[in-house]
Simulated assay, not measured.
Amino acid sequence: MSFITILLNGAQMSCAPNTSVLAFLTDQNIGQEISQNGVAVAKNGTILAKPLWDDIHLQNNDKLDIFTLVAGG
């Protein structure tokens, strides 16, 4: 089986080709954490709507960034 390389918050990772964003994040044991409100995922600089996480698939050299919104003053 071949694997592709992606960057998750700057760290190099690998997964099977055509893995969905949701499946990848779940495999990394962070799927449940990011499903909460206040967390966003960007693929190659574009924020992904949560309902699409299972429909968008990863390709070699994709870059995923996870953002947590923090309130403060």
Rank of each mutant, 00 (worst) to 15 (best):
residue 45 G to A: 03
residue 66 I to M: 01
residue 39 V to Y: 15
residue 16 A to Y: 01
residue 58 L to V: 01
residue 58 L to D: 01
residue 62 D to P: 00
residue 40 A to T: 12
residue 4 I to M: 09
residue 41 V to N: 04
residue 67 F to L: 10
residue 40 A to H: 08
residue 18 N to D: 12
residue 10 G to P: 02
residue 15 C to P: 04
residue 51 P to N: 03
residue 66 I to L: 04
residue 51 P to M: 02
residue 43 K to N: 12
residue 24 F to M: 15
residue 36 Q to F: 14
residue 51 P to T: 00
residue 73 G to Y: 06
residue 58 L to G: 03
residue 18 N to L: 09
residue 39 V to L: 08
residue 36 Q to Y: 14
residue 14 S to E: 15
residue 56 I to K: 06
residue 41 V to Y: 10
residue 73 G to T: 14
residue 8 L to W: 07
residue 45 G to T: 07
residue 17 P to Y: 08
residue 39 V to R: 12
residue 59 Q to K: 05
residue 2 S to G: 00
residue 21 V to L: 07
residue 17 P to V: 09
residue 30 I to V: 12
residue 67 F to V: 06
residue 8 L to H: 06
residue 20 S to K: 15
residue 70 V to H: 08
residue 49 A to E: 15
residue 35 S to K: 10
residue 54 D to P: 04
residue 51 P to H: 02
residue 37 N to M: 14
residue 69 L to Y: 11
residue 3 F to V: 05
residue 56 I to H: 01
residue 50 K to A: 05
residue 54 D to S: 05
residue 7 L to I: 02
residue 23 A to V: 05
residue 2 S to Y: 01
residue 27 D to K: 13
residue 19 T to A: 14
residue 1 M to T: 11
residue 33 E to A: 15
residue 38 G to T: 13
residue 57 H to F: 05
residue 26 T to L: 08
residue 72 G to D: 04
residue 21 V to S: 12
residue 67 F to C: 03
residue 68 T to I: 11
residue 54 D to H: 03
residue 25 L to S: 06
residue 19 T to G: 08
residue 3 F to M: 13
residue 35 S to Y: 05
residue 26 T to V: 14
residue 61 N to W: 00
residue 3 F to C: 00
residue 48 L to I: 12
residue 31 G to K: 05
residue 47 I to L: 13
residue 53 W to I: 04
residue 58 L to M: 01
residue 20 S to R: 11
residue 7 L to E: 11
residue 14 S to I: 12
residue 11 A to L: 12
residue 45 G to K: 11
residue 70 V to R: 06
residue 48 L to F: 05
residue 36 Q to C: 11
residue 31 G to E: 09
residue 39 V to P: 07
residue 60 N to A: 07
residue 42 A to E: 14
residue 36 Q to I: 13
residue 37 N to G: 11
residue 60 N to R: 02
residue 44 N to P: 11
residue 40 A to N: 14
residue 24 F to K: 07
residue 58 L to S: 02
residue 23 A to F: 09
residue 26 T to C: 08
residue 59 Q to I: 07
residue 55 D to K: 14
residue 19 T to V: 06
